[in-house]
Computed example of a mutant assay.
Amino acid sequence: MTTLVTMMDAPRHNAQPQDEPLVMGPASTAMILTMAYFSLFNHPLREDELLRYCHFFAISPAAFRDTLGALLDQGILVKSGALFHLRGDDALPAIRGEREARAATWRVRVARSASVLARLPFLRGLFLSGSLSKGTQDERGDIDFLLVTAGNRLWTTRFFASLLLKSIPESGRRNFCMNYFLPEDRLGIPDRTLFSATEVACLKPLWNTPGSAAFFKQNSWFRAFYPNLEPAAPPEAPHRPPFLQRLLEWPLSGRLGDRFEAWATQWFIHRLSHQLATLPPDRSPEDFRIGPWEYKGHTKGFHGRLRKAWHERLNSLEAAFGVQLIRWPWGRTPRPGQAPAEGFARLPVPLRIRRHQL
């Protein structure tokens, strides 16, 4: 196995004993880690995607092409058509093709669901998340949404969303997977992990798209994990709330609305606390969180399992390829003064992951 050709990605020593692993530089490590993460979702990447989504390390297009060529020459990466994947993942391009074709058939469903949700009272923003935000869909997939509500009306919106779900046959509820609610004056997501950063980076604004810029500014910390990625600029479409939404908001905008919000908050938190008690004790704290200013309802323990699978995948790749990878952390804890800001006036300082010099 030869050393990589770029100076920025040179190994630590000019020569190493044959029984020692090859120490990979930051650019090649970042690209391998990126491919490893997306392989957990059976999702190979195109060349432009690999550059945009390259984890942890800012890399120029020229250095990216040199490093990509070296990884291909070494047999660590393989190109299948327009897609790149790690050696041994030969089945992934066909899986992605199948999922992309299925996602295309879901576009009408997404548009219909977004149109229905746009009528919820005090809804101020709607994002598509999950696999569909990345252009793919599983056979048993659903439509995941992140909802932004008016300040001090999160649980009022959640209440009407529950009524909506009750009115829909169970077979159609997978079109309305509303598992994250945030108010517009507290948009900061506290879970600064690779998984959360990926979901933030891939969110697709569906409604009130001009207001989505505030969300991405409030969560600019994700660029510590995705330094080469800028969110796509949403179209500056004029926003006018639907008539039904304005009608429902009118009686709940004053003191009566404050009382209703206080009741809904207390009722939901009490009810969901019982659900929280039934979750596995080893669940990740990033999976399920409830409070006056946030609802996160990932009840399947996916976050913790994914973190474990990612570390296991890196261990297996090091053994299979005979390399040593830089282990950038899965998550970062904000330093004092870097906690997510409340409101639009104070924005969190993006976390900076130190670049390793080899």
Rank of each mutant, 00 (worst) to 15 (best):
E318H: 10
L50M: 12
R289G: 06
Y37K: 01
I353D: 01
P231Q: 13
P169M: 04
T278Y: 06
W310K: 02
F56L: 03
P210T: 11
P238S: 12
H85C: 15
G211C: 08
R119V: 09
M24T: 03
S253M: 08
A201K: 00
R124E: 06
L146S: 04
A27Q: 08
M24N: 00
P190R: 12
R352K: 09
R327P: 02
R255K: 10
P234D: 08
P44N: 03
H311R: 13
L187E: 10
I353S: 02
T136Q: 05
L86A: 10
G297F: 05
V148W: 02
N179M: 05
A320T: 05
M178K: 05
L165I: 08
H311C: 04
D287F: 05
Y37F: 14
R109A: 15
W263D: 07
M24F: 01
L22F: 04
L252C: 10
R107H: 11
Y180H: 12
A63H: 08
L248A: 13
G97L: 06
F216H: 11
L248S: 09
D19N: 09
L86F: 06
P292K: 12
A277V: 12
A91D: 14
A197C: 09
A63W: 00
I95F: 11
N219V: 04
R307L: 00
I59S: 01
P340S: 07
D90T: 08
F160Y: 15
E20T: 10
L256G: 15
L347M: 10
L351M: 12
G151F: 01
V349D: 07
G322K: 12
W328H: 14
F216T: 01
N228A: 06
P234W: 11
F57G: 00
L279V: 11
R12Y: 08
M24L: 14
F176A: 07
L147W: 03
S131M: 05
A111N: 12
N179S: 12
A214M: 06
P190F: 08
E199L: 03
G331L: 00
Q245D: 11
R240Q: 14
P334W: 03
F57A: 05
G331Y: 00
Y226C: 04
C54T: 15
G130I: 02
Q357G: 07
R255F: 15
T193I: 01
L51R: 11
W106I: 03
I353M: 14
A237T: 14
P234Y: 10
D138R: 13
D144V: 06
A309W: 01
D258T: 10
M35P: 00
A224D: 02
S316H: 11
S28Y: 03
S113W: 06
L132V: 05
G254L: 08
D287H: 06
M8L: 11
W106V: 02
D66L: 14
G125H: 07
Q245F: 12
V116G: 02
L72P: 04
R327E: 06
A118W: 01
T299I: 13
L244E: 05
A201L: 04
R313I: 00
L40I: 00
H274T: 15
N175C: 13
R346N: 09
W328M: 04
F344H: 12
F122T: 03
P205K: 09
L123G: 06
P280T: 06
N315H: 14
W328K: 07
G141D: 01
D258H: 07
T29V: 00
S129R: 10
Y37S: 00
A150F: 02
S220M: 07
Q218K: 07
F145N: 06
